[in-house]
Amino acid sequence: MARKKSIKKISWLNFALFFLAMIAGIFILQKSIVGATCANTGNCKESLSLKIENGAVATFSGQKITPPQIDLTKTDESRRVLGEAVLTGEKRIYVDLTTQTLTAYQGDVVFLQTKISSGKWFPTPTGEFTIWEKIRATKMSGGQGADYYYLPNVPYVMFFSGSGVAAGRGFSLHGAYWHNNFGHPMSHGCVNMRQVDAQKLYYWVDPSTNGNVTLSTGDNPGTKIIIYGEAP
């Protein structure tokens, strides 16, 4: 009888432990995916899809800005030219937050070196990442009060994930038309680039561009990005 009782106790204990583990698991999952802070918007998914709003007015630092007009039927001239360039070797992108510099290598050759703006109001994550999606343009918004921003037609967006940063959080390299203070932190977590540099990088990085939205796949994997240092 006593043995039966102790077996019952153990099974109840196991059940309780299993139940607690389930709750803890759900909580962690909710925190890391659903409740995690997005790079830009209140709703993380908003900026992850192609969105063109020609004619919309952007807001940044309390100022109204006219975003660049985007015509998806037009082919970028530089895309054709870059396609002809012959570079071989593995592609890697290094972002040095201390010097606010991005350097893109193919093999041992520097493809691009330029000043960027990393996170000012929210830190840019450090670690090793992979580009998982490329979008020709999207909308980014967020902030409150004087920090409110609404930015349609953000060009050449290259989303990255890895090092504990889920894809859905919306961290990316992209062009920025609303400021020209590169070399100094100015973003909400993303890596801001001059539009000309973002365009050049966009058509160079993998996954190789296939339309206005390109997802990385096993056959078309994304370029590695290494982000390191400490923003000033």
Binding site: I65, W178, M186
Partner: peptide, 11 residues
């Protein structure tokens, strides 16, 4: 003076 923080805003 580092750049422009907005359309007409010099930093």
């Amino acid at each position: 003076v580092t750049g422009w923080g907005g359309v007409g805003l010099v930093v």
